[in-house]
Nucleic acid binder design. Structure first.
Lengths: 300, 300
DNA sequence: TTCGCCCGTTCGGAAATTGTGATGGCGTCG
DNA sequence: CGACGCCATCACAATTTCCGAACGGGCGAA
C-alpha cells in the first residue's frame, strides 16, 4: 500500500466517480480503477459498491475513509513541516574566538544570527588561533576567528581586517626603556605568547631580524591574560594597537611592527553548508565586507 | 512522496547505515540511497549527514523523524483496521417478513446474527409475500420470507418448510357450517387475502376445482388482521394450520388443503455478497437445513 | 421495446519508475 | 601505507504503472 492508493481512495470517495476522480488527479480512469482494485485486495475488503451511476462507499469504506484521510494528513504534515524548515537553520553552530568580544563584534554577529535564525543555537567558545585551527579541522568547531596567515588548503579563509600590533610596556618599566632599539628591548623581560599564536610569529620576526633573542618571563596564550601580565609589570609583550589606549598601567612603544590579519576560517568542504553560509552571511554584514564567491553564488 | 520513502527514512534513521537499512528492507543499498536522495529533494531539506561511519540525522531530520513515524503509523492503522473489518459485517441488512415472528423463528435468527456480527444492524420489516418480492427485486430489501412457489430467475430461493393450510372458521358460525363441502362453504362469508398472497392462490385453487366462487366479505393482506377478522366472526378464511389450536373464538375445519412452501428469497446476483452469505448461514442453522450450493462453496 | 448514453472493467502494449550489480571516492583503522 | 567499510554514481534490467481501446451492464429517452 502506498500513498497514491489512499489519495485515489479519498478522491473517488469524494467524487463518487472514477472518471471525475481521474480528472482531479490528472490521470486516466483505468489507472484509478486499478488503484482501487489493488487497495481493496491488499486490505481484503470491499471499499465501494459499483453502481451504474458511479461508486458508492460500502459501510467498510465509510469506516476506513477517515483513517485514510488521517494518513494522508500525516504525510502532508511531514511535507509541510519540511517546507517550514527548509530555509530555517536549526541545531547549533560552534564558533571559536581568539580575542575579546568587542573587537570581534560578537554582539552584532549574535544579533544578526538570532534575528534571522531564531532556532539556531550559537555557541561562541573561547580559545586562541592555535587551538581554534585544529578544532575547525576536526569539526569540533564549525568556524573560528584566527589571526595570521593561514596556509591550509582544507580551510576557507575570510579576511576581516588588519590588526596593527604594538609593543606594550608596563608603566613600571618606563624608566628602564631608554630607547626603542630592538636589541635593547630584548634584554628586558617579555611576556611571551605560545608558538601557535600569531603574535608569536610577529615577535620572532622582529627579533630574528635583529639577531637577538628576548628574555622569556612568562607565556600566556589568552589575550586578556597577556594584557593583564603586561599591566602588572611582568614584562613587555606584543598586543593589538589600542589595547592600552587610555591605560595608566601600560603604554605602547612607538616601534613599527607588521600587522597581522584577523580572519575567519571554516572547512572548505563546508562552503555550501547552509549553516556556514548563514554564519558567513551575517559575518560579512557585520564587518561590511563583500561575501566570498562561494557565498555569493547562491545566497541572496 | 510515497510511503516507501518514509519507510526508508525511518529505517535509515534507526540503523544509521544505508547498508543495514537495505538489509532490513530486503533491498539493495543503491535503492535506499535513491530513496533518501529523492525524499531530501522533494522536502527541500537535508535529512542526513553522510559520514564515513554511516548516516547521521541532521537536526532537521531529527525533527522530521517523529512526523514520518506518525505518517507510517497512520497508514498502518488503515491496514490494521481493514484487517479487523475484513471478516466483519457492518452496515445493515433489511429482511422482509410475511407472517408472525415465532413461526419465522426470528428471535433465533436475530440471536445468531447478533452473536456473529455484532456490528450488523438487522432490520426486520413487516410485509407480505406480495410486497416483499418486488422490494427484494429492486433492492429495498436484502432478503425476505415469502410463501408459495417463486418463478423468477433473478431471485434465489431457499426452501424452509411446508406450511399446511386449513380453513379457519369463527366459533360464531359453527352452527351454520353443517358440512365441509366446498360448494356449501362458498356460500358463507369469507375473509379474502389479496391476490399477491399465496393463501389467495390456495383459496382459488380449491374453489375453482369445485366450480364455485366464495362470497367476499373483506380483504386483509396482513396475517394477524386476517386471523383477527376470522376470530371476530367476519367470515371464514385460509390460515396456517395451528393458528387456532387452542382458540375459543375460532377453529379449523377438517378440509384437505394443499400446503404452500415457506421460502427465503434474495437477489441471485448477490449470492456471493458476504452480507447475504452471512444471513443465509444463520438462517440455515436456525432452520436446520443444509446451505445451498452457492453458500457452501466458500463459507465454512 | 430499442437505442443511445454513461460508467466501470479488462486487456495489450508503451512509458516511466524503480531496482540491481559494479565501480569509484573518501575516510578510518590496524 | 594498505585494507576495510561506507556511501554515491552509473548503465542496464526488471517491475510497475499508465494509457488508449474495446467490452458489458444498467439506465433513461424515444
Amino acid at each position: 500500500m502506498e500513498l497514491y492508493h489512499l489519495r485515489t481512495f479519498v478522491a473517488v470517495a469524494e467524487e463518487k466517480h472514477l472518471t471525475r476522480a481521474a480528472e482531479r488527479l490528472f490521470t486516466s480512469q483505468p489507472a484509478i480503477s486499478a488503484h482501487i482494485k489493488a487497495l481493496e485486495e491488499t486490505l481484503g475488503v470491499t471499499l465501494f459498491d459499483r453502481t451504474p451511476k458511479g461508486m458508492r462507499l460500502t459501510p467498510v469504506g465509510e469506516e476506513l475513509l477517515p483513517r485514510a484521510r488521517q494518513a494522508l494528513a500525516a504525510a502532508s504534515a511531514v511535507m509541510q513541516h519540511a517546507k517550514g524548515l527548509q530555509d530555517e537553520l536549526i541545531g547549533s553552530v560552534r564558533i571559536g574566538l581568539n580575542t575579546d568580544a568587542r573587537f570581534l563584534r560578537l554582539t552584532a554577529l549574535q544579533a544578526g544570527l538570532a534575528a534571522h535564525y531564531p532556532r539556531l543555537e550559537v555557541a561562541m567558545l573561547t580559545g586562541s588561533t592555535g587551538t581554534n585551527l585544529p578544532a575547525v579541522r576536526v569539526g569540533k568547531l564549525d568556524a573560528a576567528f584566527v589571526t595570521g596567515e593561514i596556509d591550509d588548503p582544507s580551510l576557507s579563509v575570510c579576511f576581516l581586517c588588519d590588526e596593527p600590533l604594538v609593543i606594550g610596556a608596563p608603566a613600571s618599566l618606563r624608566e628602564q626603556i631608554s630607547s626603542t632599539e630592538v636589541a635593547e628591548l630584548a634584554r628586558l623581560p617579555w611576556v611571551y605568547t605560545s608558538p601557535d599564536c600569531s603574535h608569536f610569529a610577529a615577535m620572532r620576526a622582529i627579533f630574528e631580524a635583529h639577531c637577538c633573542e628576548p628574555t622569556r618571563m612568562l607565556i600566556a596564550n589568552q589575550e586578556d591574560a597577556l594584557v593583564e601580565m603586561i599591566r602588572a609589570g611582568v614584562g613587555l609583550g606584543i598586543v593589538r594597537a589600542g589595547v592600552f589606549a587610555a591605560d595608566e598601567q601600560a603604554y605602547e612603544l612607538p616601534v613599527a611592527l607588521p600587522s597581522v590579519p584577523l580572519q575567519f576560517v571554516y572547512q572548505r568542504k563546508r562552503e555550501n553548508d547552509p549553516l556556514i553560509r548563514a554564519v558567513m552571511h551575517q559575518l560579512c554584514a557585520v564587518w561590511e565586507i563583500a561575501p566570498p564567491d562561494a557565498l555569493a553564488r547562491q545566497a541572496g
